[in-house]
Design a protein around this nucleic acid. Structure first.
Lengths: 157, 157
DNA sequence: CAGTATACATAGCTTGGCTATGCATATCGC
DNA sequence: GCGATATGCATAGCCAAGCTATGTATACTG
């Protein structure tokens, strides 16, 4: 029987998470980092946004995101669209090349991890998919709270 | 309805994983890194082992593990036990201080993330716990395969 | 006992993360 | 309209975690 108190589940979730991250990093011959795919995933899922907002959503600081965006830009994986109404700002959007690279990574990852997860039965697969959705909704809510907090402290109505 | 083909679930699992890692890193005021907790978790769950094996299990290279072990040793969070029968080797074991730090981190993490997950119903909590177990068993199996492969290529019977 | 294999350490690099700070542009008060 | 303040991104400089290549000491093997 698994532990069903929330603190334990949270701790186990994050611990397993950290180990899975290393497995994902090593099984593919992939030289790219989680940060790259994370950033592209966010852009694909949520659409174009400002660098600062992208940093908040990705849970990194603005200078870190500046570096990531520059690196992605050099690869042609994103586009930087200057804001006509605000010369300081820019919109970041995923370039089709970036989306293609992201898709390729997911395929490579799936191929590499399929042996590890090949014996999942339908129930287990559904459990994993449901868990992913549960976490995703919380990440989204957390993101919304962040953006709202930033808006309320700022001057924007 | 969630996507139930294995490649998609794997991709989503790892993507959400990467975002959750950042959330976990930022919600706690914590300055420690995932690598530290990952290493201590492995030592706690699997018991003392050699540095090289610890590296394999953690899915990092031996030099990376050497650095981590040195850092953990300076904090007094692990112990290095010299092997009587092999002066080159050492057993790494988690020091009680390390276990205590790990526990403290899990509590802090749970406290910080509880608001985000506070609205989980019993079914959702169980789904998360089951998913953690599913992934954990695959990580374990993957680990076993690694160790076995190393043994068969080596001269050890 | 020479040669090879093994276990860990060291060197040196890259990337991703951080804080502090700079610079350009908006916006607000007067 | 203009100075002061706020905002958006860039730069500088640091540290940790990851890597490959290589070194050093010990063990094993012929």
């Amino acid at each position: 029987m698994t532990q069903l108190d929330l603190p334990t589940v949270i701790g186990d979730l994050v611990s397993v998470n950290h180990r899975l991250t290393r497995l994902a990093a090593t099984v593919t011959g992939n030289t790219e980092s989680p940060a790259v795919w994370r950033t592209l995933s966010v852009l694909r899922d949520l659409g174009p946004m400002r660098l600062g907002e992208l940093a908040k959503v990705s849970r990194v600081t603005q200078p870190t995101m500046t570096k990531l965006v520059h690196a992605l830009d050099e690869r042609g994986w994103i586009r930087r669209i200057v804001d006509r109404d605000d010369a300081r700002a820019m919109l970041i959007s995923a370039d089709p090349h970036g989306i293609a690279a992201l898709d390729a990574w997911r395929i490579e990852l799936a191929n590499s991890l399929t042996p590890t997860f090949a014996d999942l039965d339908d129930d287990e697969l559904e459990t994993l998919a449901s868990a992913v959705e549960i976490v995703r909704t919380r990440l989204e809510r957390s993101r919304a709270a962040l953006v709202e907090a930033a808006a309320s402290t700022g001057h924007v109505a």
